[in-house]
Simulated assay, not measured.
Amino acid sequence: MPNSYFQFKQFRVEQDRCAMKVCTDSCVFGAYVEVGEAQRILDIGTGTGLLSLMVAQRSGASIDAVEINPEAQQQAQENFAASPWSERLHLHQQSLQEFARQERPKYDLILSNPPFFLSSLKSPDAARNTAKHTGELLFEDILFFAQQHLTEQGRLYLLLPPAEALYFAGLAKASDLYLQEALQVFTYHGGKCIRHIQTYTFAPETAPVLKDFFIREEDKVTYTSEFRQLLQPYYLYL
């Protein structure tokens, strides 16, 4: 049974009321996103608030987080309030569609670990379905919002399984957002690719940069040096 919380070096994520718990690939995603000098960041479908907290740790940005599920929203709000960056973290308990209807500034970064199972069988757990299946939040909604609210030099980051990542890339190109880089995340050396971390911008790119990232060595136990380096600022025992 998953722990009711996940303790990081500088913050703690309570997760007992959230359908989707803290997992390794989402931690890789949060650590990998390049924040640079971003002043405004949007986290779509924040869940526990993990991604917002991770980018808050290494930036001075003002961060908006959108979450439609009331229980997840309440838990994220508590996680934000307990963090050292509470004054820069702003939670909105509404759908992205509702959020988009209000006047919003443009964002330097938009990031999302969205619901991604397009056609898989649904679970009897309604909250988990909302968290994992495209329904309340569609890929097209993310793209439409990014078109309207991403700065000219801004970047859109997504974490998706390989098949859904390919599908999203096609949709994005039709919306004048272009894949610049894809980090292919593998469970271990010799294992399967479980996720793509995609970076999109408005600049056309004919040959996106493809990189491989391995979480563990071939023994399936030992973390790779690249994983340790990336997560060292966050994980307690790295």
Rank of each mutant, 00 (worst) to 15 (best):
Q10L: 12
F11T: 00
V13K: 03
K21P: 06
C23H: 04
V28M: 06
F29G: 00
A31T: 04
Y32R: 08
V33K: 02
E37F: 08
A38L: 08
I41C: 01
I44V: 08
T46K: 00
G47V: 00
T48I: 07
A56G: 09
Q57L: 10
G60C: 12
A61Y: 00
I63Q: 01
A65L: 02
V66K: 00
E67P: 04
I68F: 08
N69S: 13
Q73I: 10
Q73P: 08
Q74S: 12
Q74M: 12
Q74E: 14
Q77A: 15
E78Y: 07
N79S: 12
N79H: 11
P84R: 11
P84M: 09
S86C: 14
E87Q: 15
H90D: 08
H92E: 13
Q94C: 14
Q94N: 14
S95H: 05
S95A: 11
R101T: 15
Q102G: 09
E103A: 11
K106D: 11
Y107T: 03
L111K: 04
N113F: 02
P114R: 01
F117G: 00
S119V: 07
S120F: 07
D125S: 13
R128N: 09
R128K: 15
H133D: 02
F144T: 10
A146S: 15
Q148S: 15
H149A: 14
H149D: 08
L150H: 02
Q153R: 15
A165L: 00
L166H: 06
F168D: 01
G170L: 09
K173Q: 13
A182T: 08
L183F: 06
T187Y: 04
H189P: 04
G190S: 09
C193M: 12
H196W: 07
I197G: 01
Y200M: 10
Y200A: 05
F202E: 07
F202H: 09
T206N: 15
F214Y: 12
K220D: 10
K220Q: 15
T222F: 12
T224M: 07
T224P: 08
E226I: 10
F227V: 04
F227K: 03
L238T: 13
